[in-house]
Design a binder for these strands. Structure first.
Length: 308
DNA sequence: ACTGCGTCCTGGGGGC
DNA sequence: TGCCCCCAGGACGCAG
């Protein structure tokens, strides 16, 4: 469930706790949590020990911490964090014990007391120390927290498209027109396109359903049969709903998504269609339907959102 | 090249 | 009470 607003809430929350702090050690409690790591858990811990944390950057649902070596020189690698379905980054004081926390996967000990916990029940999330490389599209490296001129991203992020809240994607820019064109280019439904993180990043299942409800578009509407203006409306609605959710601290249905202090966001109460199967559409009163699509649930109003 | 499906994983909840 | 199946879904790998 962590999509852009949830990941950004975590990123912004982490920033003041980790900027300029030195990592003294890292403990991996579940190898799967570092499954992408070249060299495994040992390499993971060795690459982090003694490094100082620089910027905390996010692009879409990916977040990473840049690192500086013991000699003060920036490393050409970064600590990547992906929360997956149920990942959490929690800031703890140094005396917090790890007993009785069955889902604690990785712990970072920072100097001067703080601990960072990566907790993840469903283990779809991961941490890894990865080389920084140029992005495929040479767009800005990250949206939040990074000097845009740097434009370097961890390897796993190289093919990830621009962040939906990236200022470079403002209406009327060349990047925005290019995105609109690429969205309409393929033969596929609009929701599939919105969820394709290599085109545009940050949208997940919940906010895709919400943006499509707001613009009265069916989730499987073929994009090549949509006008540029219609695509623009969907993008604007997506940006709107992401910004509103971010202001509310994200969407939480249960304790699986929380901020760095373990507190839930409150956007769930503002959802218009996601999770409302059988309840009346807030526009026309028709019961909301839920259909299986792409191995997940799509919620929509069968009257407001017709395929054309 | 592009599209779309299966897989990974855990715990909660409903039905019988 | 216990068991089984379904459900949540981000991103990747691979088949067609």
């Amino acid at each position: 469930m962590p999509e852009l607003p949830e990941v950004e809430t975590v990123r912004a929350g982490l920033e003041p706790h980790v900027l300029g702090r030195r990592i003294s050690s890292a403990q991996v409690y579940r190898d799967r949590a570092v499954r992408r790591q070249d060299g495994g858990p040992e390499a993971f811990a060795a690459l982090l020990a003694g490094r100082t944390i620089g910027q905390v950057v996010r692009r879409g649902k990916f977040c990473w911490l840049t690192l500086t070596g013991p000699d003060g020189v920036p490393e050409d690698y970064a600590l990547l964090v992906h929360l997956g379905m149920s990942g959490q980054m929690l800031v703890k004081t140094s005396d917090a014990g790890t007993e009785g926390h069955p889902h604690l996967r990785v712990r970072l000990q920072l100097e001067e007391g703080t601990q960072l916990w990566f907790v993840d029940q469903r283990t779809f999330g991961y941490l890894s120390v990865e080389d920084l490389v140029p992005t495929v599209d040479h767009g800005p490296g990250g949206f939040a927290g990074q000097d845009v001129a740097a434009a370097l991203v961890p390897l796993a992020v190289a093919h990830i498209g621009r962040d939906l809240l990236d200022p470079a994607l403002a209406p009327g820019t060349g990047a925005r027109r290019e995105l609109n064109r690429r969205l309409r280019a393929g033969r596929r439904g609009i929701k599939r396109a919105l969820l394709d993180q290599s085109l545009i990043s940050g949208i997940g299942n919940i906010y895709a359903d919400e943006a499509l409800w707001r613009t009265k578009v069916h989730y499987d509407q073929p994009t090549d049969r949509m006008s540029a203006a219609r695509i623009e409306a969907v993008l604007e609605a997506a940006i709107e709903v992401l910004a509103e959710a971010l202001a509310a601290g994200g969407t939480s249905f249960d304790a699986l998504y929380v901020n760095i202090e373990g507190v839930s966001g409150y956007f769930a109460r503002s959802l218009n269609v996601y999770g409302r199967e059988g309840l009346p559409c807030k526009r026309c009163g028709t019961p909301i339907l839920r259909e299986k699509f792409m191995n997940r649930s799509s919620h929509f109003c069968p009257v407001c959102q017709r395929r054309r």
